[in-house]
Write a protein that binds this DNA or RNA. Structure first.
Lengths: 190, 190
DNA sequence: ATTTTTATTGACCACTGTTCAAACAAAAAC
DNA sequence: GTTTTTGTTTGAACAGTGGTCAATAAAAAT
């Protein structure tokens, strides 16, 4: 009919991302198709490919953006003057788990999906998290920390989140377990 | 042409599993299609559905069967009379990592894939691993171990395997890191 | 008023897992 | 030995996927 929309209803990266972000939160990567997004946007799925190279690009942009909240949160923990180093250390681990489990679909794209297209966008993201983490932890523990220990801490948290992501467990349901996991890991550091 | 094969070349669960297992080891779950399997079997893809309910069932049978090697390996560690408890504890963790990383596609089906069909088959498998693990660890440590600690150990190993599964890292390339991760976790137990 | 650029459509491609009527081989019943 | 029944395979069909692209029309530039 009309191969181009009136300027009022023209698409844009931002509009697509808004809709996709919304649907993504409840659907996840695999079961949210380009056509479903197009449907909500009231456009054809082909149009989306004018704004994004492929499906992976859309979702990576969403995830990358939303992961800044995690950075922010960890940063907040570190710059709080009312908490001790020990408390900070605990909160760092605890908040990481909390973030992962309250943004399970995000976590999946960032750390779990094995799709090659998705992975091609992930050079920076996960490493950045790891580095931030490492620096923070090092600064909180008196004893010198090796990079292997940093890895261990990070991957141990990762395993916790991954497992309960798959089980689709609410964070609220495993708050206690999260706390004890964080404490368990801290014990290994000392 | 011939809607039924001569008895010599008839399909069977076993034959399908043999071929699928082979292809699965190098292709993984997502990118190995029913049609590819049928192609190698020289039959139509429809025929496979006579022997298996769906794709997930095939792969679950493969994975379930091959995971017995892990059970066996852990059992071997425990029943070795020449190693101390401390050595056994280390080997338990180390061998788990090794198994996961030398059977990455298996590990993915058992613990990672979020597909509903796959998960419907997974009521027993992962819990069984966890339980075996818990009993073994408890028996190796003098101090009483809580179930939360068992969880922590297990999920920490899981995170390690998961991460390097995604990165498709060879176990050989991170042997050292595996060892230090195992040792890190043991430190938390004491 | 005309040309150029830009964004959208929808048909199309090559896939995917899954279903199922039809067809025929083998086994069982007669 | 013939007929019936059962078991197994085929291949077309379905509904879906991500992705491409010529045709087209609105908007912008001339």
């Amino acid at each position: 009919m009309s191969p181009r929309k009136s300027s009022q209803e023209e698409l844009s990266k931002a509009i697509i991302l808004d809709v996709a972000r919304d649907l993504f939160a409840s659907n996840g990567y695999a079961s949210l198709s380009m056509r479903k997004i197009a449907n909500v946007l009231q456009c054809s799925h082909g149009a989306i490919y004018y704004h994004f190279k492929n499906k992976a690009e859309i979702f990576y942009e969403i995830v990358e953006h939303d992961f800044e909240k995690l950075d922010q949160e960890l940063h907040d923990v570190m710059s709080d003057r009312t908490t001790t180093s020990d408390e900070k250390l605990f909160l760092l681990l605890y908040r990481y788990i909390k973030f992962g489990l309250t943004n399970q679909n995000h976590y999946e794209v960032m750390f779990l999906i094995r799709d090659e297209d998705v992975k091609s966008y992930l050079q920076e993201g996960p490493n950045k998290s790891l580095q931030l983490f490492g620096e923070a932890i090092s600064s909180l523990v008196a004893k010198p920390i090796t990079s292997k220990e940093i890895y261990s801490i990070f991957l141990s948290l990762h395993g916790f989140v991954t497992h309960f992501c798959r089980a689709e467990t609410n964070f609220e349901d495993i708050k206690d377990l999260s706390k004890s996991h964080a404490q368990f890991l801290i014990k290994a550091l000392h």
